[in-house]
Computed example of a mutant assay.
Amino acid sequence: MNAIRSLSALVAAAALCLALLGCAAADPAVQSTENAISAIGDVVLSSRDAISAAREAYDGLSDAQREKVGNADKLTEAEALWEDEYGAKLSQVASAISAIGKVTLESEAAVSHAESLYNLLSTDEKVLVENRDDLFAARKALSSLEEEEASKPKPFAIGDSVDSGKWHVELVDAYTSTEVADANALTSFVSESGTFVVLEFDMLADPGTRDTIDEKVLTDICARWNGQEYGNFDMQYAPGALFVSAKNTIFDWTGTLHLYLFAELPREALGDLVTVDLKVLGENKQAVIR
C-alpha cells in the first residue's frame, strides 16, 4: 500500500512538472518575442525595423518572462552589429545637422560639414537620417540669406576700384557742389537753384574694348537724400576742352577716361548726407557723400 501511495505521489509530481513546463513553453508573449528575434536574420541596413520590433517585444516582458527567452543574446548581438555598421555614422550625420542651429551668414562651415557627411552615405542610408529635411532647409535658408546679402550695396569709397577681365573702374572723388567743372574744360555745369551730387571715375579698359558705359559699366544709379530718390543722372567726360555725353556712346578704348557722373538735387542737399547706389561692372555699390 505504501508503495502504491509513493508511486501515485511521484506520478502527480511528474505531472505537475510537465504542466509547469508546458505553461512556460506555451507563454505566447515569450514565444512571440523569440520569433521576433529569429526574424532579424542576417543584420543588414534594412534590419533596423526588425531589431526595433524585437527590442520592443523583449522590453515589454516581465523579468520572469525575459529569463525564458532562449535567444535574447541574439538580440543584443544584432543591435551591436547594426550600431557598429550603420548606426554610428547615421548618428554622426544627425548630430552634425542638429549642430547647425539657427542659420545665419556664418553657418556655411556647419552646413557644408553636415552635407559632406550626408553625401558619404548610400541612398538607402540617407533615407534613415531622421532630420535630413532640416539639412535641406538649412541650405535653402543660407542661400536666401546669401542672395539677400549679395543684393545689398557694398561700400564704395574714394580710392576703391572694381576690376573685371577687361575693365578697371576707380572712384576718384565724390562730393556735392553747385558746379560740375573740369580744370581743362571750357564747358561747365552750374546749378542756380540746386546742387549736384558728383562722382568722378577713372576708367581703363583693355585695348579694343568697345562698350557703352551706361550699359556695361555704371548702371542702376540712384541718389538718396532726405528720404527722396534721384535717378536722373548724367554722364560726361572731357575730351580736350569740352564736356561730352558718355551715354549710349561706344568707345574704342586706348587709355584712361575720366568720367563725371552727376544729378541735380535741392540746394539743401549741399554738404548734407547723400548716398548713391549703383552697379559697377555688375557689383552693387554705395557711395556715401557728406
Score class of each variant (00 low, 15 high):
residue 217 V to D: 08
residue 228 Q to L: 01
residue 222 C to S: 14
residue 219 T to Y: 10
residue 215 E to N: 09
residue 216 K to M: 02
residue 215 E to P: 00
residue 221 I to S: 08
residue 206 D to G: 03
residue 207 P to R: 09
residue 219 T to W: 04
residue 231 G to T: 10
residue 240 G to A: 11
residue 235 M to L: 15
residue 212 T to L: 06
residue 238 A to C: 09
residue 209 T to R: 07
residue 241 A to M: 12
residue 208 G to Q: 07
residue 209 T to M: 07
residue 204 L to H: 07
residue 228 Q to I: 00
residue 215 E to C: 00
residue 223 A to I: 09
residue 232 N to F: 03
residue 238 A to D: 02
residue 209 T to L: 08
residue 241 A to E: 14
residue 206 D to P: 00
residue 206 D to E: 11
residue 231 G to S: 14
residue 209 T to A: 03
residue 211 D to Y: 03
residue 241 A to C: 08
residue 229 E to R: 09
residue 234 D to N: 13
residue 205 A to W: 05
residue 219 T to M: 03
residue 220 D to H: 15
residue 212 T to P: 00
residue 226 N to W: 03
residue 225 W to F: 15
residue 212 T to Y: 02
residue 221 I to L: 13
residue 218 L to M: 07
residue 226 N to K: 12
residue 239 P to H: 10
residue 239 P to Q: 05
residue 208 G to V: 06
residue 239 P to T: 01
residue 220 D to I: 09
residue 235 M to R: 03
residue 211 D to A: 05
residue 203 M to G: 02
residue 238 A to H: 01
residue 219 T to S: 13
residue 230 Y to K: 07
residue 233 F to K: 04
residue 208 G to F: 04
residue 221 I to Y: 08
residue 239 P to S: 02
residue 233 F to N: 00
residue 225 W to Y: 15
residue 197 V to D: 14
residue 238 A to Y: 02
residue 229 E to N: 12
residue 199 L to D: 11
residue 202 D to E: 15
residue 197 V to T: 15
residue 203 M to L: 15
residue 227 G to W: 08
residue 215 E to W: 01
residue 240 G to I: 00
residue 234 D to S: 15
residue 214 D to S: 12
residue 231 G to A: 02
residue 197 V to K: 13
residue 237 Y to V: 01
residue 233 F to Y: 08
residue 205 A to H: 06
